[in-house]
Simulated scan of single mutants.
Amino acid sequence: MITTVTRRVAVALLALTLSACANVSSSPPATPTAPVTPAAAYRLLDDLCEQLDHNWSIRLAGVPPKFKAFEPLPAGKDHRRCHAGTVTTDQQTVILVTVHTRVDRSEPLDIGLPKSARLLDNVGDRGWILFGKPISRPNELLGGEITSRQDQLTVVKGPAMVSVTIMIHASSVPEESAAEAVLTAYAQRSLELMAGGQ
């Protein structure tokens, strides 16, 4: 009698165990999610340009940049803008990097899409890049030619917007691929710093 009851209990426990295993194996594996920066964590930085890496312009011009931060207007407290300007002693190479940032938590940021701009999918949530047309003219002081070009990249990530413009005035300007790499690095690093990165 006891043996029969014990056998029945053992069979019932085995059935429950097999059923539980079947349920576990049929459940889809959990998908890891990337950490998301809370909207409230993004902030504007007055010294953003000073924290960015400008080694590329130092290599090109041979001198470090000088920085300027613009005071936000009363109506633009959610904006910041700064410059990193490099000018050689002979004034034949001029590089101006402008970084415009914004944090707006009230509504999705609209960055539009200028004519001839190309959409980006490798930085931020959405963005675009626009290369200017190189303009060359004779160099009256040193001979040869001086070429100028202005390129811009704008991206949005959550409530944060970063727009970077590079203007170069020199005997030659970087290829578009090199300019895109620099603009992308500026934008990515700006977003990291705005999110509290070091």
Rank of each mutant, 00 (worst) to 15 (best):
W128I: 07
V155N: 03
S25M: 14
D110E: 13
A39C: 00
P38R: 04
D53R: 13
S57K: 09
V155T: 07
R102T: 10
T33M: 12
A40T: 01
A84S: 14
V97S: 13
T154A: 14
V162W: 02
Y186S: 09
I129C: 07
A117L: 01
R7G: 12
I2A: 15
R80I: 04
Y42H: 00
A12D: 00
I168N: 01
I135Y: 14
V36G: 03
P114I: 06
A30P: 04
D151L: 06
M194C: 08
L44S: 01
A22G: 12
H79P: 05
E192M: 13
S27K: 12
I58Y: 03
R102K: 15
D121G: 09
P65G: 11
V97A: 13
V103D: 03
T6I: 15
V123Y: 04
L13I: 14
K77I: 12
C21A: 14
L52E: 09
L14N: 03
D47H: 02
R8T: 12
A75I: 13
Q188R: 15
L45Y: 00
L113A: 03
V123C: 05
T37D: 00
L45F: 00
K66W: 10
P72E: 10
P138D: 10
R126M: 01
V156N: 01
R81Y: 08
L141Y: 04
T86R: 05
S177H: 11
I129P: 03
S116Q: 02
L130K: 12
M167I: 08
G85C: 08
V99L: 14
S27H: 06
P32N: 07
A61S: 02
D104C: 14
K133V: 14
E145C: 09
I168L: 11
I146R: 10
P64W: 03
T101K: 13
I2V: 12
G112A: 03
A20E: 05
L141F: 07
V156C: 02
G85Y: 06
T93Q: 02
E180S: 15
A181F: 12
S57L: 11
Q188G: 15
N23H: 11
A160H: 01
Y186C: 10
M167C: 09
R7D: 11
D78M: 13
G197A: 15
Q92K: 05
R149A: 10
R102M: 15
H83T: 11
G132T: 05
D151T: 06
M167G: 12
L141N: 05
T154M: 03
D125V: 02
L14I: 10
P114C: 05
F70S: 08
V156G: 00
L45I: 08
D46H: 04
G132S: 09
S27R: 13
G85I: 12
Q92L: 06
L73N: 13
F131K: 07
P64M: 10
L141I: 15
K66P: 00
S19P: 07
R8Y: 09
T37Y: 00
S26G: 09
R189N: 15
I168M: 07
E176C: 11
R126A: 00
A30T: 15
G197F: 05
R43S: 04
A34D: 02
Q92A: 04
L13A: 14
